[in-house]
């Protein structure tokens, strides 16, 4: 892992509670910790002038959705994000999906779920339950966008959509 990524990762707070979405007693506490870590990560990103995603969940914290942005050649590309929290979370990591890119790249499973590097799963497993959704974003989606989006743009598979002004 490069030094910048290490620094980014180490500045995301670690989570304490090991609980999945079916744990009625401890899931609310885990969910609070997820939000705390995400809030800190987004604040860090804004301070570093790299505000690249937003996320929110349903009330139960089982379904998450949001947007991410990637700047390439001075243009800002926006993509929808969605994922569910698996029943075996946090032992099983979340599978982040970009549904708009489904079928457009080989680096994706059906439904737009991003394929992660071979490093991700063992790294996640070693850090259960300390890693959470914020860490999955930093270790998973961030690097995936950095590799895949420029390639998809260069190939013309992803094209810039100008936001309409009202």
């Amino acid at each position: 892992m490069d030094e910048t990524s290490k620094k980014t990762l180490s500045s995301i707070p670690l989570l304490k509670t090991k609980a999945g979405p079916r744990d009625k007693d401890l899931w609310p506490q885990r969910l609070k910790e997820e939000y705390q870590a995400l809030i800190q990560y987004v604040q860090n990103n804004k301070a570093a002038d790299n505000d690249w995603f937003r996320l929110e969940s349903n009330k139960e914290g089982t379904r998450w959705f949001g947007k991410c942005w990637f700047i390439h050649n001075l243009l800002k590309y926006e993509f929808d994000i969605e994922f569910d929290v698996p029943v075996t979370y946090p032992a099983t990591a979340v599978e982040i999906a970009l549904p708009e890119l489904d079928g457009k790249t080989a680096k994706m499973y059906r439904g737009g779920k991003i394929c992660l590097s071979d490093h991700f799963k063992p790294l996640w497993a070693r850090n259960v339950p300390k890693f959470g959704i914020a860490h999955a974003m930093a270790l998973g989606l961030g690097p995936w966008l950095a590799v895949e989006i420029p390639d998809l743009i260069e190939k013309g598979i992803v094209t810039y959509k100008e936001k309409s002004t009202q």
Partner: peptide
């Protein structure tokens, strides 16, 4: 993460308003 007095609703709202 530090112990917090904030409720889950408050944290959700904070995330929305960042």
């Amino acid at each position: 993460v530090e112990d917090t007095q904030a409720s889950l609703d408050e944290l959700m709202a904070q995330m929305k308003n960042i």
